Computed example of a mutant assay.
Amino acid sequence: MPKATAPAAPASYEAAQQELEQLVARIEAGQLPLDEMLAGYQRAAFLLDFCRARLQAVQAQIQVLDEGMAHAWTAQ
């Protein structure tokens, strides 16, 4: 049995979002044979996880920045 390789990560959040939108459109349109639909669904799930992780990372960074700004304002 061949060893499964890790899915290729998208270059950016925006690239993942665009690929995800295209996959969803193809799946919804019924343009894919069953095997390709399953692979598309798996890729879509991977892309969705990637997007969620990026959003959470950005939210965490914003929270740190907000806390830093709040401390800076109260120190004045």
Rank of each mutant, 00 (worst) to 15 (best):
M1H: 14
M1Y: 11
M1P: 12
A4S: 15
A4D: 12
A4R: 13
A4H: 13
A4L: 15
A4F: 07
T5E: 06
T5W: 00
A6H: 02
A6M: 08
A6T: 15
A6K: 13
P7Y: 04
P7S: 12
P7T: 10
A9E: 15
A9C: 08
P10L: 08
P10C: 10
S12I: 02
S12A: 09
S12K: 02
S12T: 09
A15P: 06
A15K: 07
A15H: 05
A15N: 06
A16H: 01
A16N: 01
Q17Y: 03
Q18M: 02
Q18N: 12
Q18V: 11
E19P: 08
L20T: 03
E21L: 11
E21K: 10
Q22A: 10
Q22E: 15
L23I: 11
L23H: 02
L23M: 07
L23Q: 03
V24T: 13
R26V: 05
I27N: 04
I27E: 05
I27R: 06
I27S: 01
E28H: 05
A29H: 01
A29G: 05
L32G: 06
L32S: 04
L32M: 07
L32A: 01
L34R: 10
L34S: 08
E36W: 02
E36C: 03
M37Q: 13
M37Y: 00
L38H: 09
L38V: 14
L38A: 09
A39H: 00
Y41F: 03
Y41P: 01
Y41Q: 14
Y41M: 12
Y41N: 14
Q42M: 14
Q42V: 10
Q42K: 15
R43K: 08
R43M: 01
R43A: 00
R43G: 05
A44T: 07
A44P: 11
A45H: 06
F46S: 04
L47K: 08
L48D: 13
L48S: 15
D49H: 08
D49A: 15
R52H: 03
R52E: 09
R52T: 09
R52F: 04
L55A: 04
L55R: 10
Q56K: 09
Q56T: 05
V58C: 00
V58I: 11
Q59K: 04
A60S: 11
I62Q: 12
Q63Y: 05
V64T: 13
V64S: 07
L65I: 13
L65M: 12
D66K: 01
E67R: 11
E67Q: 15
G68V: 00
M69W: 05
M69E: 14
H71Q: 15
H71I: 09
T74A: 11
T74W: 06
T74S: 15
A75C: 08
Q76C: 12
Q76W: 00
